[in-house]
Nucleic acid binder design. Sequence first.
DNA 1: CACGAGACCTGTTCGC
DNA 2: TGCGAACAGGTCTCGT
Length: 274
Amino acid sequence: MPELPEVETIARNLREGRLGLQVPGQVIVDISNDWERQIAAPDWKTFRCKLRGQTILDVQRRGKYLVFPCTKGTLLIHLRMSGDILLVDHQEPAGGHEHTVFHFASGWSMRFSNTRKFGRVWYLEDPAEIYDRLGPEPLGSEFTADWLYTELTKRRRKIKPLLMDQTFLAGMGNIYTDETLHRAHIHPERTSDTLSRQEAESLWQNIRSTIEEGILRQGASIDWIYRGGDFQNTFQVYRRTGLPCPTCGTPVERILVGQRSTHFCPKCQPETQP
DNA sequence: CACGAGACCTGTTCGC
DNA sequence: TGCGAACAGGTCTCGT
């Protein structure tokens, strides 16, 4: 589910107290867990032991990871497809999918709701081991049009799976990739090294503007997972199969690319370079 | 190196 | 109405 804009929104909400509690400054008195596989590293016992008593100093984001720097090490959470973070009073009855709960000294709990159990939690002395495997941030200064063009040229991969490869670029998911490629008029199956300099420039521009708009709109809320955002109201192609392309009226098509549902306009995004 | 298939999970929606 | 199939915002591993 959550891609960069949704994770960024959650991080800001937790950091700024928009869910009723500011997480920075909270002291973790204990952690409970009813599904150990959710703890990716270290093992659950060590995780609980090491994190108990620590203070959360901040809430940040890197790629699609939520990052909680603590007194000693760093807590990281990846929400994957169906994860969410809830802040509630200790007394609040538990939902059915909250497998890891952080109990704060303030009487509040931070619960990791994770319906499909894909999400994972880490406690690391040094988060570099996660960061090192991630590509640049789309809104960061290392991600330039020059860099993108050069890197596209070095590979011969379909553009959509490449943009979603977190080691290439950190944060793009299925929604934002489909919307970005539509805005840039690039077919999702174009091979990366066939993009012209001008197309790479447009792609760079549209990656940034799509992500920025997603953050401004506080992400997308679709299906039964409501996150408060309204980016879904601006979708041009994502999950709009058969509906007219807002630009040219041609029905939006759905194909599979890299096993992922892919939506595009066959007229605005031709397979061959115009 | 690039790609496809399968795995990991539960819930909702769709088609007959 | 009921029931199985398809599908869902992500990532990992394995085989070709």
